[in-house]
Write a protein that binds this DNA or RNA. Structure first.
Lengths: 212, 212
DNA sequence: GGTTGTATCAACAGTGCGTTGATTAAATCG
DNA sequence: CGATTTAATCAACGCACTGTTGATACAACC
């Protein structure tokens, strides 16, 4: 082991990187990204400001790394979901939406900061866009399949347009719920409200569609 | 008239204020608010940077004034709408949503900047929140009335929660459509897609509900 | 025990912000 | 019409944060 010395002389590079990320997520829980200086991040990680630049070139790059983790976690959990849309569509949609609710709730500070930085920073925008496109593609495929089997008949809206609108709704509604703005939906009801709108928008009615 | 002189010596205070606002909206069409310095605004209005502070105390206050105008325009147009939800609900909802589409399209730069500044600036946040609450309240009242007359029966979601989610969806979907991000809904289809989701979410089906 | 690459920071330079205090010019009044 | 007030302007200053440079320390490897 490299850092064995009796008074742990200097942290390794990876540990420093990690310390910077941890500091950033901790501070983001208290204040906005632009109220956090690079010096804050450096001191929190136990280094001086210039040393920060050895690991990251900007605050936004730190945010990008944090956002990347959050997105990966969503992807992993979505991939692990059972796909039972043809047997129990209501529950299947609800489970999928639940993943977003849970992960964004667990990392609300990072999510909020990323959404705020998206307009300003092209990299954050690109990362978020790519993830959204994946999720929209996933939802589109399911909607198309549900229409093909005759379960979802109520809507004439283009499947992809519908998927885009619903995903953007989720993003905004969750962001509002977790950052405590008003108007916003109470956190305990968010999953029910969103699921209900998805179901009615896709199937055209509130009643659970029967297996074909 | 005060400024009659043959070579229009100095603009009046109101004209300067107006010039600053016009400069801000013009520059916002090209770049983000944080890429616009106070000096840019001052020079654009024909004054020096310190003189800017005579009229506004910050960039954000300029944005606040611009946003206030946009919101007022929406309010005025919404107030002027015919309220025919009981006779032709589909068309009535569509007209209401159309107001937002039109006004936000006309002032997309200001809207985008305001949405970006909302997280960071409490005044922008408060102004936007208040407006959203008004619109949510309006939609909630109509949903409650439609349920009372038996037209909207498909949903068990709390009327206000439903109104909040749908309004937040509109905000996000319009923002995405007009700022050219991806995924986004093509501008020419946005009104149709949003109206469709509102109708199906509120009435539980895609078919036009008949007058009671 | 010298060489190499990693990690660190003091000090500098640049940019934009917000303020102060003096100055000019128009409006008002005696 | 000269004196006085009020509106408007800006040069100059101090501050906070950003990003860079060049010198330095330290671990590891041969």
């Amino acid at each position: 082991m490299a850092t064995r010395g009796r008074r742990s002389p200097r942290l390794s590079g990876d540990e420093r990187q990690e310390a910077i990320l941890a500091t950033a997520e901790r501070l983001l829980a208290e204040r906005n990204l632009d109220e956090i200086s690079i010096e804050d991040l450096a001191l929190g990680a136990g280094i001086s400001r210039p040393s920060f630049y050895f690991y990251y070139t900007s605050k936004d790059e730190v945010l990008l790394a944090l956002l990347d983790r959050v997105i990966s976690e969503v992807q992993a959990q979505v991939a692990a979901l059972p796909r039972t849309f043809d047997r129990e569509p209501r529950a299947a949609w609800r489970r999928s939406i639940g993943v977003f609710v849970d992960v964004f709730a667990a990392h609300r500070a990072v999510s909020a900061a990323a959404i705020g930085a998206r307009l300003r920073n092209p990299e954050v925008h690109a990362l978020w866009s790519t993830a959204m496109q994946t999720w929209v593609g996933y939802a589109t495929d399911v909607i198309v399949a549900e229409r093909a089997r005759g379960a979802a008949s109520g809507s004439s809206t283009d499947a992809r347009d519908l998927a885009i609108a619903l995903n953007l709704m989720n993003e905004r509604v969750l962001s509002a719920a977790f950052s405590g703005e008003s108007p916003a939906i109470e956190q305990t009801r968010v999953l029910d409200v969103l699921s209900g709108i998805w179901i009615r928008s896709i199937y055209g009615s509130d009643t659970t569609p029967h297996p074909a």
